[in-house]
Design a protein around this nucleic acid. Structure first.
Lengths: 370, 370
DNA sequence: ATGAAAGCGCTAACAG
DNA sequence: CTGTTAGCGCTTTCAT
């Protein structure tokens, strides 16, 4: 339990070092002025007393708070990753970060308000779901950086990866392997999903595969991916794993051709997809190749080993902090839109399509589906 | 971009409402005193000006900050879940939460310091890795609540689930289904893993199954679970999924009997385990039953459907906030140790063991392994 | 180079 | 019930 004698104040250090509080303040913040002798005395006194500055007080006194506010979805591992990098980048520039998690009882508005209460000097919004007008309104009063999605809002800095390009990379990779029937599992409504879907469509067009386009409904999590598996393989028994799958060639209804490859909105969706496909006896990548998006830690697991598109979170983080500090420290006033190039990380869930009529179903299963 | 005219201050509201700043302060904080007329005038003025209190200033002025600091591992979905519930519980009691994430560049010490800089009135540490002496030292200066693990540290409040009981529930459930060879996949070194392992050993003893004890090395994530699969099934080809598994009965080396059930340190480990087992052609729960720990969101996914032990995060969160506020508001001075009873959530990864000599390998695969 | 003093914006006594 | 006033702990002119 905290000892009653409240923690030492600047004044206490000053008294002990036999100098003024002003000197102590300067020394402790490493600012030029005080002589070497004073410095030493102050540092010693501070050490002896175990002094730590009260940020609340210094923030009040200073105009600046040096605080950057970040809103994030606690459940998103991509956000978690970004946060780590944001933290590091902010650190280097002498800023501190306040994170305001979105939860089911705490939407983006509240999260932002909380940040403003802390007097954050800029708001970094991870994958904000606010509408463009809402963002623009916010930006009238505060510095705001939208991270990870496009935003057509005046005054808002944007840092994002070219998602359409990213999906394009995935599609091209698959096409390069020889796939022609490449499906796409859509994401949850929103600007991010829109751009990725566009990327898919455009890539198919470039490759002359538009006829093969197949966008199936999806979502943002494993559940959605799992559900999508049924749309891709509508002939599988819809529940239970105890019924042998019928020969997929005998299919009626559903897509006339089964895709030999699937690009998913993100890794979580890809994961749900993988899991369901494999349970249904579909080999990945033997029967179907799968590509995710985000290159999340889980994709890197040896057991998952998912080919995925990386948004380069470190680069995004650095760019975002940069955007904020340029406004705060360098007086930039026009909005910027930083677009980073995603890159594909090829792993084990993609390989050439099965030879016509033959399945490359994993031999370890000892089964062939057709 | 922020407009230069700094935001309205209390004084501005007072002037506009033609009352004193004191009255405004009281009204805005909903404290008794001001007359209805004053209230209305103030509220209107505040609304007109778009006033929002500067928390920094009020914290300074007030003795109290009403801030609770939380350290957490951003990567842990269990922590994420707890955080949501902590947030809600704190809210109800008029406290605000500052979260300080641990990252690879930011260990627990730094995270705590950051919280102290914010003048948090209590520290809630999620699954702290600090040693007991370190915790005790911290507790001399601050209110600290350790959440999710046991702690033998003077002055530290502890809120945890009875992990040994939890693992016991899992083992008993399996034994009740008829399993006798029940293995345990250990967690990462630390107090949590120790207690869970103990729970496993004691449960076996109670059930007269000590001879069947098998603790295999594990860890905290999917990777570890995947690796553990090989220790449980040492005869599986160690890499690649393209070699049909040999008849496991012909095993030489490794455990003489294959366990028919496995309890994993946590859900992530269980997940890695599940994935690897299934890829190796082992049916779950047909050949091997698997139980996880944490009842994390992923365990609940239809595609995963993992039997797991729930630590009841909501209850933990409430108890933790309670512990903190009792100290702060009710003047409690002795440490408390709140132990919550975990409960088992039975899902699809557990079923009776295979009949002797027969495999219940999933029929949907159309294969039998032996 | 150093110290005295005036705030930062708000809260809490204390008068009135 | 309302207004006045003295701080909260630190930073920052501005003299010295």
């Amino acid at each position: 339990m905290p000892s009653r004698p409240s923690r030492p104040r600047l004044e206490d250090v000053a008294a002990r070092a036999r100098v003024s509080t002003a000197s102590v303040s300067l020394v402790l913040r490493g600012r030029p002025g005080p002589s070497a002798a004073t410095r030493e005395a102050v540092l010693e006194a501070a050490r002896d007393l175990g002094y730590r500055a009260d940020r609340t007080a210094s923030l009040l006194a200073r105009r600046r708070t040096q605080l950057l506010g970040v809103t994030m979805d606690v459940r998103s591992s991509f956000h978690a990753e970004l946060l780590e990098d944001l933290q590091a980048a902010a650190d280097e520039r002498g800023y501190d970060i306040v994170v305001s998690p979105l939860t089911r009882t705490r939407d983006e508005r509240r999260a932002v308000e909380s940040l403003l209460d802390f007097r954050c000097e800029a708001l970094l919004l991870l994958g904000p779901r606010l509408t463009d007008p809402e963002l623009a309104a916010l930006a009238e009063e505060h510095h705001v950086v939208a991270i990870g999605r496009r935003a057509q809002a005046a005054g808002v800095d944007v840092v994002r990866a070219a998602d359409d390009v990213g999906v394009g990379l995935a599609v091209e990779h698959l096409a390069g392997l020889g796939h022609r029937d490449i499906a796409y599992v859509d994401g949850p409504r929103g600007p991010i999903a829109t751009v990725r879907r566009q990327g898919y469509r455009r890539a198919l067009k470039r490759l002359g595969l538009v006829d093969h386009a197949l966008v199936v409904e999806g979502g943002g999590d494993e559940e959605a991916g799992s559900a999508a598996a049924h749309l891709l393989h509508p002939l599988q028994p819809s529940r239970g794993h105890d019924v042998p799958p019928p020969d997929r060639r005998e299919a009626t209804g559903g897509p006339s051709r089964m895709p030999s490859a699937v690009v998913a909105f993100n890794d979580r969706v890809a994961l749900g997809l993988l899991d369901r496909l494999r349970r249904d006896g579909v080999a990945v990548p033997g029967d179907v190749a799968v590509v995710g998006y985000d290159d999340s830690p889980i994709a890197r697991l040896a057991t998952v080993d998912l080919t995925s598109v990386s948004q380069a979170p470190e680069a995004m983080a650095v760019a975002a902090i940069e955007a904020a500090t340029q406004r705060l420290d360098d007086g930039r006033t026009h909005a910027v839109d930083v677009v980073l190039e995603p890159h594909l990380v090829v792993r084990g869930t993609t390989s050439p399509p099965p030879r016509d009529g033959a399945s490359t179903t994993s031999g370890s299963r000892g089964i062939r589906l057709r």
